Simulated scan of single mutants.
Amino acid sequence: MASVCFYFQVHQPYRLRRYSVFDTDRHYFDEFKNAELCRKVAHKCYLPANRMLLEAIRQHEGKFRVAFSLSGVVLEQFRQYAPEVLDLFRELSDTGCVEFLSETYYHSLAFLYSREEFRDQVEKHRLLIKELFGQDPRVFRNTELIYNNDLAHFVSHMGYDGILSEGADSVLGYRSPNYVYRPPHAPRTKLLLKNYRLSDDIAFRFSNRTWEQWPLTADKFALWVNQINGNGHVCNLFMDYETFGEHQWAETGIFDFMRHLPEAILKSSSENSFITPSQQVDQFEAVGEIDVPHMISWADTERDLSAWLGNAMQSNALHELYKLEGALKEKGDEQLLTDWRRLTTSDHFYYMCTKFWADGDVHKYFSPYESPYDSYINFMNVLDNVQTRLREE
């Protein structure tokens, strides 16, 4: 049996406007740029991809299923700038074939710095998903799949039945990501691991003409999935939703590939199926325990935290940011708290990354700044104004 689980991450940060050390304006975020980018990605990805998935679900009469994790900040932007996208997500939810996962509302690194803030953001996100889609998430996905044993233990006590993680070779060893596992000291929680090789074939290698497997067709990919039969139970394909139309442009054939993939997988074996993360939790027993004492993620070749904590600028910015939490919450200024929380979004620190070679190119692609140093200076200028507001009566 190969039960395929598609999970898509949907996120757009609130990007900061250029903010000088002499600036005193309390409007930190570039509303024009945020609206422009949200609508651009909606046109290229979210709208056509949602329609494609709706068509596939209807065509296969419920046999095709997917899961999403939508950050709270992207849902806010959909409401404000692209309500038609939100309508399509509601339509997907109404099919009964789409599951929404829990995560931190602000797509933050809060678990690393404040368990109280982490819990608050997860609860705020859970309530929003309940409000918009009528679902109470059972499975948790941390920002950028950042994970370790402590996180699993903490999340299990928050009542979640499952948690997602990267199927990193460093923690799996000889074992396969194509089974359900459990974390240490959290026996009721199932650990669902990303098959990064097959996921990255779609997310990163699909349009690479120098790749020995190019062009990738639905039938070829279905054969690879089918090889899991007898060597695993699940095939977890986790990726950014922006893979469709934004990272892999429509001209590459990515939409046609995805349109034909459900039929190709279902017809290649009568035992193949599509399931959601909570169905994985319910259908499969854990085959063993995976010990992850150190933090891992799905970012870059190292699959660690170096994308956000790899240099002194990032460490300093994060330290200074979370140092304000206690006084800020005591002040009781809701707008100031919201501004601060939007600054906790992991993207701001990703832009400060100073890596080179392939990983560096990826960071440059996503960054709106000319350099990581510009990003750090701009962020710290904003944070300085937050501190000024905090000191005001």
Rank of each mutant, 00 (worst) to 15 (best):
D219A: 13
D94A: 15
T24P: 01
A286I: 03
E116K: 15
R79W: 02
P368N: 05
G173D: 02
P183R: 01
L324D: 05
D374V: 08
G96N: 10
Y365N: 08
F238E: 00
W249A: 14
M295I: 11
E76P: 05
W214D: 07
C45V: 03
C45P: 02
K33D: 12
Q335I: 09
L128S: 01
N142I: 06
F100R: 01
N272V: 04
Q12Y: 00
E131M: 09
K331T: 03
E271H: 13
F206E: 10
F29W: 07
S176K: 14
E370F: 10
F204D: 02
F100T: 02
R18M: 05
L191T: 04
P187I: 04
F118N: 05
G232S: 10
S273T: 14
P215W: 06
E166S: 13
F204V: 10
L337N: 12
L151A: 02
L75V: 02
A218N: 02
D339S: 12
T276E: 12
P83E: 01
S3D: 15
F32H: 15
Y106W: 13
H11D: 09
R65P: 00
A307I: 14
L336Q: 04
P368G: 08
M158G: 05
Q121H: 13
R126S: 05
L92F: 04
E91A: 09
T338P: 00
H11I: 09
K329R: 15
V73H: 06
L86Q: 12
K190C: 04
H43R: 15
C5I: 15
L101G: 03
F22I: 13
H348F: 11
W308N: 06
V281W: 08
R65Y: 06
K40G: 03
G253L: 10
V66N: 00
Y14N: 12
S71C: 03
D23K: 06
S3Y: 14
F68P: 00
S176F: 10
D30N: 15
F133D: 11
Y179A: 00
V281F: 12
A218W: 04
V382Y: 05
F133A: 12
V382D: 02
W224H: 12
L266I: 11
E285T: 13
A218K: 01
F204L: 14
H363I: 12
R341L: 11
Q280K: 07
Y106T: 05
M158K: 07
S306T: 15
E144H: 03
G96S: 09
E144C: 03
P187D: 10
R391M: 08
E325Y: 10
S306R: 15
N378Q: 00
L266C: 10
N149Q: 03
R119P: 01
F284I: 01
Y14R: 00
H153M: 13
Y322W: 14
T345Y: 11
G360R: 03
D219Y: 11
V155G: 07
Q279G: 06
